[in-house]
Deep mutational scan, measured.
Amino acid sequence: ENVVSAPMPGKVLRVLVRVGDRVRVGQGLLVLEAMKMENEIPSPRDGVVKRILVKEGEIVDTGQPKIELG
């Protein structure tokens, strides 16, 4: 899985990584606000952040790609 998608609709509060960052499985990639709760979205695997496809403040839909890992 190279693309991390939104598990639920919500607002991107914070992006916790930058392009080029090495990430580990379970590491937080971003914080999504859904139903007035903050949810940290974890990396599904070890890898390197290739692209960030969302911006802080953006509203995302379920299944929308957010971060691409290499």
Rank of each mutant, 00 (worst) to 15 (best):
E1Q: 13
E1R: 12
E1W: 14
E1Y: 14
E1V: 14
E1I: 14
E1A: 13
N2C: 15
N2I: 14
N2E: 11
N2Q: 11
N2L: 14
N2A: 11
N2M: 14
N2V: 14
V3Q: 07
V3N: 06
V3K: 06
V3P: 06
V3I: 14
V3A: 07
V3D: 04
V4E: 03
V4C: 09
V4W: 04
V4T: 04
V4F: 06
S5D: 06
S5E: 08
S5A: 11
S5W: 11
S5L: 13
A6Y: 06
A6Q: 04
A6G: 06
A6F: 08
A6M: 12
A6K: 04
P7T: 13
P7G: 13
P7L: 12
P7W: 11
P7N: 12
M8V: 09
M8Q: 08
M8T: 09
M8E: 05
M8N: 07
M8D: 00
M8C: 12
P9C: 10
P9Q: 10
G10E: 02
G10Q: 06
G10F: 05
G10P: 03
G10T: 04
G10V: 07
G10S: 04
K11Y: 07
K11V: 11
K11R: 12
K11H: 04
K11F: 07
V12C: 07
V12H: 00
V12M: 02
V12Q: 00
L13V: 11
L13R: 05
L13N: 03
L13F: 02
L13K: 09
L13I: 12
R14K: 11
R14N: 03
R14V: 06
R14G: 02
R14Q: 06
R14S: 05
V15T: 03
V15P: 00
V15I: 15
V15N: 00
V15C: 08
V15E: 00
L16P: 00
L16K: 04
L16H: 03
L16M: 09
V17S: 00
V17Y: 00
V17F: 00
V17L: 02
V17D: 00
V17T: 03
V17E: 00
R18K: 13
R18E: 10
R18F: 07
R18G: 08
V19D: 02
V19R: 06
V19F: 03
G20Y: 06
G20D: 04
D21H: 06
D21S: 08
D21M: 10
R22I: 13
R22Y: 14
R22T: 12
R22Q: 11
R22C: 14
R22S: 12
R22E: 11
R22M: 12
R24K: 13
R24F: 13
R24Y: 13
R24T: 12
R24C: 12
R24I: 12
R24D: 06
R24H: 12
R24Q: 11
V25S: 10
V25Y: 12
V25K: 15
V25W: 10
V25P: 07
V25A: 13
G26H: 06
G26V: 04
G26R: 05
G26E: 03
G26C: 09
G26W: 07
Q27E: 07
Q27N: 03
Q27R: 04
Q27S: 06
G28R: 08
G28C: 15
G28P: 15
G28V: 15
G28T: 15
L29S: 01
L29Q: 00
L29W: 01
L29E: 00
L29V: 07
L30Q: 00
V31H: 02
V31Y: 04
V31G: 00
V31P: 00
V31M: 05
L32T: 01
L32V: 09
L32C: 08
L32A: 00
L32D: 00
L32K: 00
E33A: 10
E33Q: 11
E33V: 11
A34L: 10
A34D: 06
A34T: 13
A34R: 09
M35A: 11
M35W: 11
M35Q: 12
K36F: 13
K36T: 11
K36P: 04
K36I: 06
K36V: 06
M37F: 09
M37I: 12
M37V: 12
M37P: 02
M37C: 11
M37G: 12
E38W: 10
E38H: 11
E38D: 07
E38G: 05
N39T: 14
N39H: 15
N39K: 13
E40R: 09
E40F: 12
E40S: 09
E40Q: 10
I41Q: 01
I41E: 02
I41A: 02
I41K: 00
I41C: 09
P42R: 14
P42A: 12
P42K: 14
P42N: 10
P42V: 14
P42C: 14
S43T: 04
S43P: 02
S43Q: 02
P44S: 05
P44F: 06
P44L: 05
P44I: 05
P44C: 06
R45A: 11
R45W: 14
R45G: 06
D46L: 05
D46V: 07
D46F: 08
D46S: 10
D46K: 07
D46G: 08
D46R: 08
G47N: 01
G47T: 03
G47V: 03
G47I: 03
V48H: 08
V48K: 05
V48R: 08
V48I: 13
V48N: 04
V48G: 02
V48D: 03
V49H: 00
V49W: 00
V49I: 12
V49G: 01
V49A: 02
V49Q: 01
K50A: 11
K50D: 04
K50N: 09
R51E: 06
R51N: 09
I52L: 06
I52H: 01
I52V: 10
I52G: 02
I52Y: 03
I52D: 01
L53W: 12
L53F: 14
L53D: 03
L53T: 03
L53P: 00
L53Y: 13
V54D: 01
V54I: 10
V54P: 01
V54W: 03
K55G: 08
K55R: 13
K55A: 11
E56P: 12
E56S: 08
G57Q: 05
G57Y: 05
G57K: 03
G57V: 03
G57C: 08
G57L: 05
E58C: 07
E58W: 09
E58D: 15
E58L: 04
I59Y: 15
I59S: 10
I59E: 11
I59R: 10
V60H: 02
V60T: 11
V60I: 08
D61Q: 14
D61V: 15
D61G: 12
D61N: 13
D61M: 14
D61F: 14
T62C: 12
T62Q: 13
G63L: 07
G63W: 09
Q64Y: 07
Q64M: 09
Q64L: 05
P65E: 06
P65Q: 07
P65W: 10
P65V: 11
K66H: 15
K66I: 15
K66P: 07
K66R: 04
K66F: 15
K66M: 15
K66Y: 15
K66V: 15
K66E: 15
I67Y: 03
I67F: 08
I67V: 10
I67P: 02
I67C: 06
I67N: 02
E68W: 13
E68M: 13
E68P: 03
E68S: 07
L69Y: 04
L69M: 06
L69S: 01
L69D: 01
L69F: 10
L69Q: 01
G70M: 14
G70R: 13
G70V: 14
G70Q: 13
